[in-house]
Design a protein around this nucleic acid. Structure first.
Lengths: 368, 368
DNA sequence: TTGAAAGCGCTAACAA
DNA sequence: TTGTTAGCGCTTTCAA
């Protein structure tokens, strides 16, 4: 068969277009468009005919065409370190829920805390002409990628991490207080040597949590021993190594605060490999609380962040900012809670007969 | 100031367009387009001028316009149950990596294993005119949403879960063999009463794993006791309740296979609440292996799926299918491995003096 | 209340 | 090798 050589991209059945709908309903595309966007001024009769045609043809408007015409994509980009980290996957799910409700699409970008990956995703976002970007900065000291977005007139909202000078809406927790809360608790329990496994210093949550740790010690008139502060790089390996460094010391600390959940897993691996008893030999408090923190032996005392709320608020801030671009910048700070379970208990206390240790009777303490 | 009333959507600085680049380089937009797509037939001189203009203007092509014009979005939709489940977040990250490399964007859709949510996401995918969809069916017995995609000429690839009649490329593990492997191991260790915590019967991995469990027992000439098969709904709560049902029986099983990781967390919660000793009182094997399986006490014996490989292969199958639509359908079945750690150990063996139990001396066994 | 028509930014056929 | 131009599917102005 000889056919004309007009070029056709997709030989497969493409969906119906607005033209098809218009033809079938016997109206103009303008009318269909009006029905689509629920605009006033369409007669009952035509409205019904159009709706009918839409249904019959299983028509769905082409988003690319819409975006091109409307000059706004209704896509929100999200820059997170790694969706494999439970904290961030929960964040993303919540943001998505709120945004979807408002007719926006969430486009995910994992940065793995590398500026280069962040840049790559920012480029994609710019190409997609995103309506906004919610971001956890890969490096709190280098926000050039974020600034690039702003220069392009794209509203941005910071989550989880601070942004220093940069004027942007933000949601995060009170990291200093949260860390202080944990250390205060350990001090109250009578711990003398309290260590910290911290994260990369270019990530704000890491140094803020460290600040909180040091603040608590100083407030209590205790010295801050730099040897007891180990960088675990926010990774599982790092947590493992940091824990090893700490436990191989001649004078082991009696308690440890771990600045994120991933490192806690690494720390626990070391603890279990060496059959160290928690909390008898060492008390442990972990940042971040997971549903399965109670499935771990011993159940972990943890600093629980209101993750879902952070996600929802971030999305809401974004929507507000898009609607009212000139509103004043908002900074939302939420408080984290200390959930006391059984991974920290003062070894001194365990000598008191009135309060049995876990290993004796396996009680469980739950507060908060 | 009185201005003309021409309508303007975005008052903010929009990025440069191809026209701007053409003007600046003193060429036509066609030439810019040719440079952009790396086409032959542009003189060295113009090429350089165009590149320079692109750089100076920080120009990035508008994707919406491209999609509209090219009639293909280069977006791949991904339908997964819940990105908060580690297995799926890893899958997504790997797929994204491969697809991005090939110039495709991944658009994520969480179904939470609800057909309604699946439908919602499919509608979005259709509107976005996605080039393909990689899916883990919310319900293996109702693939109508997937069929709808196919009817629209959209290539689909199945991951993780079977699709029965439906002819589609797929990647999954050999679930029956994997479950059998685990149960065989427990049988070899001398366990008499082996229980299963299974998932929803409309999810193929759940019933396939159950088949493998039953097959292993039958092959060994053992009866299958329906009371020992508990539905845990693939959720943490479900795992908790299923474990409780099992342990409250007069004759407790001596070993349990848990069909996914989330339920294992629930099961462990119950185990720890009741201070049940693993593996002394009960042996446990869990489907799915996580980096932090070694951070749990005791380190979990697990069936490790090649998650990352599944993700990469799925993405590759998708790309192949797009390039060669008429290729024959491929089914890739990968094998899972049994990683033996310390959560399963035969209680009979522990009576042999030569082999101390974990709780005695805290040895660690690692194979695989 | 309705329709005609312009044009969003881009690619590719075709002409030069 | 380069430019001109049509048109992808949609929304909105403007005129009727």
């Amino acid at each position: 068969m000889v056919k004309s050589t007009s070029y056709v991209k997709s030989p497969t059945a493409t969906g119906a277009t607005i033209k098809d709908v218009a033809a079938r309903a016997g109206v103009s595309t303008a009318t269909v468009s009006r029905v689509l966007s629920g605009k006033e001024g369409v007669s009952e009769e035509l409205y019904l005919r159009v709706r009918d045609a839409i249904e019959k043809l299983d028509y769905r408007p082409n988003q690319a065409a819409r975006r091109l015409r409307e000059r706004q994509s209704k896509i929100i980009g999200a820059l997170v370190p790694d969706i494999q980290i439970p904290f961030f996957s929960t964040l993303v799910v919540q943001m998505e829920r709120v945004l979807q409700e408002a007719g926006y699409l969430l486009l995910l970008g994992n940065t793995f805390d590398q500026l280069q990956e962040e840049l790559l995703n920012v480029s994609i976002f710019l190409s997609e002409d995103v309506s906004g970007v919610i971001f956890a900065a890969a490096n709190s000291h280098d926000l050039s990628n974020i600034i690039r977005l702003q220069e392009n007139g794209i509203p941005v909202v910071a989550i989880d991490r601070s942004t220093g000078e940069l004027q942007v809406d933000s949601v995060q927790i009170a990291n200093i207080q949260a860390a202080k809360l944990a250390v205060d608790h350990l001090l109250e329990e009578g711990h003398q040597e309290i260590a910290l496994i911290t994260g990369p210093q270019h990530i704000s949550t890491a140094f803020e949590r460290q600040n909180g740790y040091e603040l608590a010690l100083r407030n209590a008139g205790r010295p801050v021993n730099p040897k007891l502060v180990q960088d675990g790089n926010y990774l599982m390996d790092g947590g493992y190594l940091a824990m090893r460094n700490l436990m191989e010391r001649r004078d082991r600390p009696s308690a440890i605060l771990v600045a994120n959940y991933v490192m806690t897993m690494g720390a626990l691996q070391y603890i279990h490999e060496k059959s160290i008893e928690v909390p008898d030999e060492i008390s442990l408090i972990s940042f971040d609380d997971m549903p399965w923190s109670v499935a771990i032996r011993p159940p972990l005392t943890a600093i629980a962040q209101p993750v879902e709320e952070i996600g929802r608020i971030a999305a809401q801030l974004m929507l507000d900012r898009i609607r009212m671009p000139s509103n004043s910048t908002k900074h939302i700070i939420l408080e984290a809670k200390l959930i006391i379970r059984s991974s920290c208990l003062c070894s001194i206390l365990s000598t008191r007969p009135a309060r049995p240790t876990i290993s004796d009777q396996s009680i469980e303490i739950r507060l908060g």
